[in-house]
């Protein structure tokens, strides 16, 4: 078996393929990794009529701006997106003010020096770091990833037997489970628990029960009461994590609510069309044995 395995690995440029359950189970058995089953949460943008809650997006933006943006960026987002329908709904003035807080590379002045200007709504979000090298230097080699697509670029690992697979798939399809990434992110932010007895982690890394391998360079970014909401919403760790997750969920797909709304009409249209076509077929074939 080992030779087969080695050959296979050599085979396709280090194909260390694995979908979670088996590998996770194996690692857990070997005592390497804590396996935490990430729960499925309810998000306002899940389901048939999903939408983003404007107040939640505003709170989430506050968390992002005050905490996450110190290390991460949202490079695919423009400041103007913050004022567009379906999003946090900031007024044009607010958007302008937010954009003006950053300095953007404009070109070169007459002396050939780099010229900067204040950000405008049409600009993309600007990262605190000059580039990935600077970021890597700050975190011992780990680069805080761009978060623009983070809720779509992460999934969760679920454990089931092979014969349960059709059932899991049917359930996902019936309940439109598309928020795995959000569930992962929320769980990650809550995942900084005490190091279990007997486990060791590398210097400069932090223990997290959710992150694959359980140790990552990001220190716990959120804690109870960290961000002042000012609107009466309790600023617990759980709430902050949910809010920033919602904001990043929106950032990953600003047209999500529009998509679902359109879908309802498309289905209604197609259902009527299919009904009429079925009727025509029945009428046409009425007296025909087949």
């Amino acid at each position: 078996m080992t030779t087969i395995k080695t050959t296979l690995m050599g085979l396709a440029a280090g194909l260390l393929l694995s979908i979670a359950p088996a590998a996770a189970a194996e690692q857990a058995a070997a005592g390497h990794e804590e396996h935490y089953q990430i729960p499925r949460l309810k998000w306002t943008w899940g389901g048939i009529f999903g939408y983003f809650d404007q107040q939640q997006l505003r709170r989430g933006f506050k968390v992002y701006k005050e905490v996450c943006s110190n290390c991460h960026n949202l490079g695919l987002l423009s400041y103007r997106n913050l004022g567009e329908p379906g999003g946090p709904g900031f007024s044009p003035e607010e958007v302008k003010a937010i954009a003006a807080e950053v300095q953007v590379f404009e070109g070169f002045d007459e002396q050939g020096n780099i010229a900067m200007r204040a950000g405008r709504p049409a600009d993309n979000f600007v990262w605190k770091f000059k580039n990935a090298k600077e970021a890597a230097a700050a975190f011992g080699g780990a680069v805080p990833p761009d978060l623009s697509l983070i809720t779509r670029a992460r999934g969760i690992e679920r454990e089931f037997h092979w014969y349960e697979y059709p059932l899991v798939m049917a359930k996902d399809l019936a309940t439109q489970y598309q928020e795995q990434g959000a569930d992962y992110l929320h769980a990650l932010l809550l995942g900084y628990v005490d190091l279990p007895a007997g486990r060791k982690i590398a210097d400069g890394l932090n223990y997290n029960r959710v992150f694959p391998g359980n140790q990552l360079a990001m220190p716990q970014p959120l804690s109870d009461g960290q961000v002042e909401y000012g609107d009466g919403t309790p600023n617990t760790l759980d709430q902050e994590a949910k809010d920033v997750t919602a904001f990043l969920g929106w950032a990953a797909e600003p047209h999500l609510a529009e998509r679902k709304k359109m879908g309802v009409w498309v289905i209604v249209y197609l259902a009527v069309l299919a009904g009429l076509l079925l009727l025509s077929k029945k009428v046409l074939w009425r007296n025909i044995e087949h």
Partner: peptide, 18 residues
């Protein structure tokens, strides 16, 4: 339409969003 409007990413691998 059901998949396009509600589960467009279901059939793909999340890793490809990196």
């Amino acid at each position: 339409a059901y998949i396009v409007f509600w589960m467009p990413n279901y059939l793909g691998d999340v890793v490809n969003y990196e």
